[in-house]
Design a protein around this nucleic acid. Sequence first.
DNA 1: CTGAGCACCTGAGGGC
DNA 2: TGCCCTCAGGTGCTCA
Length: 277
Amino acid sequence: MPELPEVETTLRGLQPFLEGAVLESVDVYVAQLRQPINKYFSKLLVGKCLTQMRRRNKYILAEVAGTSNTLLLHLGMSGRFTIFTGLNNLPPRAKHDHIIFKTAHAEVRYNDARRFGLALIIPTVEVANHPLLLKLGPEPLTDAFDGTALFKALQRRTTAIKPTLMDAAVVCGVGNIYASESLFRAGINPLKSSQNLSRKQAGVLVECIKTVLTEAIAAGGSTLRDYAQPDGQLGYFAHIFKVYGRKGQGCLVCKTPVVQVVQAQRSTFYCPSCQPG
DNA sequence: CTGAGCACCTGAGGGC
DNA sequence: TGCCCTCAGGTGCTCA
């Protein structure tokens, strides 16, 4: 599920409970994620605090205070966190709750049915050069991501623009939903060859990506006031998509039926009238 | 180098 | 009710 806005919302939801709080226990119930959780994972965290919690691409990073290590989390397709504050009345561990972090005031559970997620401890000095982070392109909500940068990145790409937008080496954090949504807003056909976008189109697309992601973060943030409730889950909120998942329904701008196609084994949605090229 | 295809894994939903 | 099929918001690997 999680693209950049969901990861950002998850991070903001976790911070009040995990940042600066001593981890009294960390229990791993299922270690077999995309990479196995290190057998010393718990030992390296218990009694420590997480600080400097932040997001890079779809990763959540946190320094383990007083050590030379950094915690790296990824939600994969189905990862989610649930926070419980009523410690005297905790519900039983749910199916696919793989890790439970406990502090004096909260219990934070990581649940991931498909187990495409990640929970790694890596040396802090290696973070910048870690294979998972080394080849990442610019963060979309920074000034480094502008029309010039995107246009340049598209020049060697012969594949269609939509799968190219999902390549984190081009721009971070844009997944299957927001790729379709951004292209709709920009009026660009998702099947158009990346290198055939004009400089002007690249500039428009950059602005649309920033807008779509910013709006989605705001929508997620507005649900955060509830996140501390006993069954409060992070990272899921009511999305309002303009094309994603709306195959056959009328375009919200021109009423032309939204079309679904498959690109690189992923569904793409677009309005053939509003996105001619 | 690029791009296409497959792999990992469980669950939800539709058709019969 | 149950079986079978397809699809799901990610990403890394192999191979041409």
